[in-house]
Simulated scan of single mutants.
Amino acid sequence: MPKIEMDPLNRRILHELQADGRISNQDLSERVGLSPSPCLRRLRQLEADGVVSGYVALVDPDAVGLHVSAFVRVRLDRQDDRHLATFEQAIAAFPEVMECYLMTGEADYQLRVLVGSLAEFEDFLRYRLTPIAGVAQVTTSFALRPVVYKTALPLE
């Protein structure tokens, strides 16, 4: 992917979009100091270049009954490409897995899992996660409360 020039105007556009993804082009152009046409042209270029990869609504997990947030570290018995691919394909199919990272250090993977209750987490652990071929060890920490949660990238 070609690297797009991240000049101050593009950074301001991205800053405003990260704060309000539903902002109108008129309001966006006023906030960044451009007329609507060049502002829309820049936005479309940011989208075409993959800098803006999509738009979403952020939903409060508690409001929809997802009260348990767990951070799960998974160690595989082997770290060859076949075992990594098997695990990654299986884990991608689980809707309660919000994030999954291949890691360095003690664990091979770190997951962020959202479920409604500890009983749901136990079911996830016992019947979905640990049966995946190659899973050797699972360690879980439960979040008590969020302290910092950001969706906007630090563009400065």
Rank of each mutant, 00 (worst) to 15 (best):
M1P: 00
P2A: 13
K3Q: 05
E5D: 08
M6D: 00
P8S: 08
N10E: 07
R11S: 02
L14A: 02
H15S: 06
Q18Y: 01
Q18F: 01
A19D: 09
A19I: 07
A19Y: 08
R22Q: 09
R22P: 01
I23D: 04
I23S: 05
I23V: 12
N25M: 10
N25K: 06
N25P: 04
N25D: 12
D27A: 11
D27F: 01
S29I: 04
E30G: 03
R31C: 06
V32H: 10
G33T: 06
L34W: 04
S35T: 14
S35I: 01
P36Q: 15
P36G: 14
S37K: 12
C39E: 09
L40R: 15
R41P: 06
R41A: 14
R42M: 05
R42V: 09
Q45K: 15
L46C: 02
L46K: 00
E47K: 13
G50N: 03
V51H: 05
V52P: 03
S53K: 11
G54K: 09
A57G: 08
V59T: 15
V59D: 13
V59Y: 14
D60S: 10
P61A: 12
P61Y: 11
A63C: 02
V64F: 11
V64L: 11
V64A: 13
G65Q: 11
G65M: 09
G65Y: 11
L66C: 01
V68Y: 06
V68W: 02
A70C: 03
V72P: 04
V72F: 06
V72G: 02
L76Q: 02
D77Y: 08
Q79R: 14
D80N: 05
D80E: 03
R82F: 00
R82M: 00
R82L: 00
L84W: 03
A85R: 14
A85I: 07
T86L: 10
Q89S: 04
A90S: 13
A92N: 15
F94M: 08
E96S: 15
E96R: 15
E96M: 15
V97Q: 11
V97C: 15
L102H: 14
L102T: 14
M103W: 09
T104Q: 09
T104A: 11
G105A: 07
A107D: 11
D108W: 08
Q110W: 07
L111H: 05
V113Q: 00
V113H: 00
V113M: 00
V115L: 07
S117E: 07
L118S: 04
L118V: 05
E120G: 00
E120C: 03
F121C: 05
D123H: 07
F124V: 05
F124Q: 06
L125A: 12
P131D: 08
P131Y: 05
A136P: 00
Q137L: 01
V138Q: 01
T139D: 08
A143H: 08
L144S: 11
L144M: 14
R145V: 06
P146R: 07
P146Q: 04
V147L: 14
V147M: 12
V148W: 12
Y149R: 11
K150F: 09
T151A: 10
P154Y: 11
P154M: 09
P154R: 15
P154L: 09
E156R: 06
